[in-house]
């Protein structure tokens, strides 16, 4: 399948990319990994008249660890995070990176592209919202920092202006005594999950939940922060009764639509189960246990 014709422009720097976006107008699009955009273009669901390739902008591909933070360049591929020591310091990020689609797509797709695409079923918007994440954007007026919760406005819609580019994500390292997990359920490797859940908890005195962040993915137009589910855990012991209350609150917060991945009812039940399991794994990790987790599908 061929995409509709477009002109190709290669940006050597961020400044040049911004300039090209301005010159080429609203029908121009940036291309990074292309793992969402190219399929859409081949199906003619997207028809940009110009593509600005930012893969050759060298400064966007680094992972850095300044004190207390993890800085992830927009062009960092999912596989880079999957295999990076820095990524492994936040297990939730590793869960997410290692489970997106399949090896080939993880080798090519980028974290910045995934967030800028804002697909309701994308994993990064859910996983990164469970942490303190800022999106660094660059435009004609210079750089600005947008908290992730303000960055994604709606399905496929962000606060980015047409001539703005995501350059990096800044994630605060979770404090000692906290742990997290990103769980997703999908039918097979290459597809988007049916539902996902990201949980980060802070534990005191063995089993007391001091703080919790619970994010639901694929069950709404954007990732959903389940605040009532968080409240059901905060200040309580992580015993089964409280975890069940949190999972029920998460189900109530979900707003899924029926589609080929499952009915709305099915997704609502599924996301609660994922939350329940994720809380358990997050708590074990918070206590220092090493637990393998991530995307699940038949044959994993």
């Amino acid at each position: 399948m061929y995409a509709a014709p477009f002109s190709y422009h290669r940006a050597a720097s961020l400044q040049e990319a911004v300039k090209l976006l301005q010159e080429l107008g609203e029908d121009a699009r940036l291309i990074a990994g292309g793992q969402s955009l190219i399929p859409l273009m081949k199906m003619r669901m997207a028809r940009p008249t110009a593509l600005i390739d930012i893969n050759f902008v060298s400064e966007l591909g680094d992972i850095r660890t300044p004190k207390g933070e993890l800085h992830i360049g927009a062009l960092v591929r999912h596989a880079d995070l999957e295999h990076s020591a820095a990524g492994a310091t936040i297990p939730l990020l590793h869960d997410c990176a290692a489970g997106i689609a399949d090896v080939q797509v993880r080798n090519q797709g980028t974290i910045g592209g995934s967030l800028a695409e804002a697909d309701p079923s994308g994993d990064w918007g859910t996983a990164l919202l469970a942490l303190d994440t800022s999106v660094i954007c660059f435009g004609p007026g210079g750089q600005r920092t947008v908290p992730l919760e303000d960055f994604i406005k709606d399905a496929y819609t962000t606060v980015l202006a047409h001539d703005e580019i995501v350059t990096a994500l800044h994630v605060k390292l979770p404090l000692k005594g906290s742990g997290g997990a990103h769980l997703a359920f999908k039918r097979c490797a290459p597809v988007y999950p049916t539902a996902s859940a990201s949980v980060q908890v802070m534990i005191e005195d063995g089993n007391m939940c001091k703080d919790a962040r619970i994010i639901l993915g694929c069950v709404g137009l954007t990732a959903i922060r389940a605040k009532e589910a968080e409240a059901a855990l905060r200040g309580k012991t992580l015993e089964e009764k409280n975890i069940r209350t949190a999972a029920d609150a998460a189900r109530a917060a979900a707003d899924p639509q029926s589609d080929m991945r499952g009915s709305a009812d099915y997704k609502r039940i599924l996301v609660g189960t994922l939350v329940k399991r994720a809380i358990g794994i997050a708590a074990r990790r918070a206590r220092g246990e090493s637990v393998e987790a991530g995307h699940e599908y038949a044959g994993r």
């Binding site: 399948m1 995409a3 190709y8 291309i31 292309g34 793992q35 190219i38 399929p39 081949k42 593509l51 596989a79 399949d102 090896v103 080939q104 797509v105 080798n107 090519q108 290459p190």
Partner: peptide
């Protein structure tokens, strides 16, 4: 031809990619 099956897999700069999903 839809980024699913992997028949088009090649190694680009040391990493496998689906060559139907790259211009």
């Amino acid at each position: 031809d839809t980024t699913y099956c992997g028949a088009c897999t090649v190694i680009l700069n040391g990493r496998t990619v689906k060559s139907c999903t790259l211009f």
